[in-house]
């Protein structure tokens, strides 16, 4: 979907601080310290109308250290998509959260944090989403090596380590819960939550 000239010009006007804007491929590059106002402006302008955050992800750059965030934002009325790149350097993996602008950013940003360790400032619920909180690695970073050969050799140790970690975490979790349920044995809250977990 190529952009109309009017839209391309409008985006140039709305985002003067962009590092680069390629109207041909509809690719916009922003600095890491961009303000969310840019996205709000692109969303609310009737010509650009970029209301639909269809995809948010990241990838590790090949030539240098660092992670680049990718936002695919679309307009459902004008049927065009703009790709926004935000390159981040290794020592500053932090950007503004887009959750106030697009609700859809909420989980997708959490996933990027989970997989790449990029922090999103102002995110309402900044936790890992897919992995356990006890995991101390960011799996999609290239320094986390997943070599089948290595993996098969170390399979036993890795597994033991992982299971031990989970066991320790679950024991830790169980301790305060058990203490509190003793205190308020009649409280329906803890009873219900336990029942639910079992069924």
């Amino acid at each position: 979907m190529s952009l109309s000239e009017e839209t391309a010009n409008r985006i140039r006007e709305l985002v003067p601080e962009a590092e680069s804007w390629d109207a041909e491929s509809a690719e916009l590059t922003l600095k890491g310290d961009f303000s969310t106002g840019i996205f709000a402006a692109l969303r609310d302008d009737p010509i650009t109308d970029l209301k639909y955050l269809r995809n948010l992800t990241a990838f590790e750059r090949m030539d240098e250290q660092g992670v680049t965030l990718v936002y695919h934002i679309a307009s459902l009325t004008h049927n065009h998509t703009v790709t926004v790149f935000v390159p981040l350097s290794e020592d500053a993996l932090v950007v503004q959260s887009l959750t106030p602008v697009f609700s859809a950013a909420n989980w997708q940003e959490r996933e990027v944090y989970d997989m790449f360790g990029v922090r999103f400032e102002g995110h309402p619920d900044h936790r890992r989403i897919l992995l356990e909180d006890t995991f101390d690695f960011y799996p999609l970073r290239k320094n986390f090596i997943l070599d089948p050969a290595v993996n098969l050799r170390n399979i036993k140790e890795r597994e033991d380590e992982m299971l031990k970690k989970i066991l320790a975490a679950s024991e830790e979790k169980a301790k305060p819960a058990a203490a509190s349920s003793e205190k308020s044995a009649s409280s329906s809250k803890s009873d219900d939550s336990k029942k639910g977990e079992a069924e």
Binding site: L131, E132, M162, L163, I166, L167, S170, A198, E199
Partner: peptide, 30 residues
């Protein structure tokens, strides 16, 4: 049966992840 307490055969159908592993064990014990 959706409840472990009423059943005698556990058909573990699918991938068990580390996050799920302890739950599977707990359900087996129940």
């Amino acid at each position: 049966r959706p409840s472990p307490r009423q059943s005698d055969l556990m058909i573990v159908a699918g991938t068990v992840t580390y996050k799920m592993a302890m739950r599977v064990k707990k359900l087996y014990e129940q």
